[in-house]
Simulated assay, not measured.
Amino acid sequence: MCGEIRDLSDVPDDIFSTKIMGDGFMILPENGEVFSPVDGVVKNIFSTKHSIMIETKDKREILIHLGIDTVSLKGEGFEAFIDTGDIVDKGQLIAKMDLDFIKENNKSIAVPIIFTNLNEDEFIYFKTHKKVKACKENVVQIHKNK
């Protein structure tokens, strides 16, 4: 996904901004193409196509939530190219979101990306307000607290 990387505190939803679901980051997308950030298996894709869970080979669970409060769109404005159980490669196009449609329906286009099963001593490190491009290496790192 191409766009600006931001801290979760910028997400206009307390579930994400307070890290209830886990640590991560947010992307403000420039376009609606969504690429897998990792090699893994699609553990779940909601029927409304607004939320995708991928599990990596080392059992990291990554939630990609396409927009905020977008479940109410009932799948309109989203196109998925994967299904639960599919194996995905880093950089593979997995979904598209219609940014104009989402904005027209008064929803946020913010895309939180959450690591839902980090250990208690781990946290996500990245540089905020930086432009990122799909498939760029080492944008986000997992660090351990000391």
Rank of each mutant, 00 (worst) to 15 (best):
Gly3Leu: 06
Thr48Met: 03
Ser47Gln: 11
Asp13Trp: 07
Asp7Phe: 11
Ile94Asn: 01
Val42Glu: 03
Asp58Lys: 14
Gly40Met: 09
Leu8Ser: 13
Leu63Pro: 00
Ile124His: 02
Ile68His: 01
Phe35Met: 07
Val42Trp: 04
Cys135Met: 08
Asn119His: 11
Ile102Met: 06
Ile68Ala: 01
Asp69His: 05
Glu79Gln: 13
Asn117Val: 08
Asp69Lys: 05
Lys19Pro: 07
Ala134Leu: 04
Asn105Lys: 12
Lys131Trp: 03
Met97Trp: 00
Asp121Thr: 12
Phe78Tyr: 13
Asp58Phe: 04
Asp13Ala: 07
Met97Asn: 00
Glu4Ala: 05
Ala110Cys: 09
Lys59Met: 03
Ile27Trp: 00
Glu55Gln: 14
Glu122Pro: 15
Glu61Leu: 04
Asp83Glu: 15
Val34Gln: 00
Met97Ser: 02
Pro12Thr: 14
Glu122Trp: 08
Thr70Asp: 02
Ile82Thr: 13
Lys90Tyr: 05
Asn106Trp: 05
Met26Thr: 15
Met26Asp: 12
His65Asp: 07
Ile20Ser: 11
His50Arg: 09
Val38Thr: 14
Phe46Tyr: 15
Asn105Ile: 14
Thr128Lys: 10
Val140Thr: 12
Met1Ala: 10
Ile54Ala: 06
Met1Gly: 14
Asp13Val: 10
Asp7Lys: 15
Ile5Met: 04
Val38Glu: 08
Leu63Ile: 03
Val139Lys: 00
Glu122Cys: 10
Asp10Gln: 13
Asp13Tyr: 06
Cys135Trp: 01
Glu76Trp: 02
Met97Ala: 02
Gly22Asp: 11
Leu73Glu: 00
Asp83Gln: 15
Phe81Arg: 06
Pro29Ala: 00
Glu30Met: 02
Phe101Tyr: 15
Val42Ser: 03
Phe81Val: 04
Ile142Asp: 07
Asp14Ser: 13
Lys49Glu: 05
Glu33His: 00
Asn31Trp: 06
His65Tyr: 03
Lys131Ser: 08
Asp100Ser: 06
Thr84Ile: 10
Arg6Glu: 13
Glu79Phe: 01
Pro112Ala: 04
Asn105Gly: 08
Lys43Pro: 00
Lys131Leu: 03
Gly24Ala: 06
Met1Phe: 11
Ile20Glu: 03
Lys146His: 13
Ile82Tyr: 10
Thr48Ile: 07
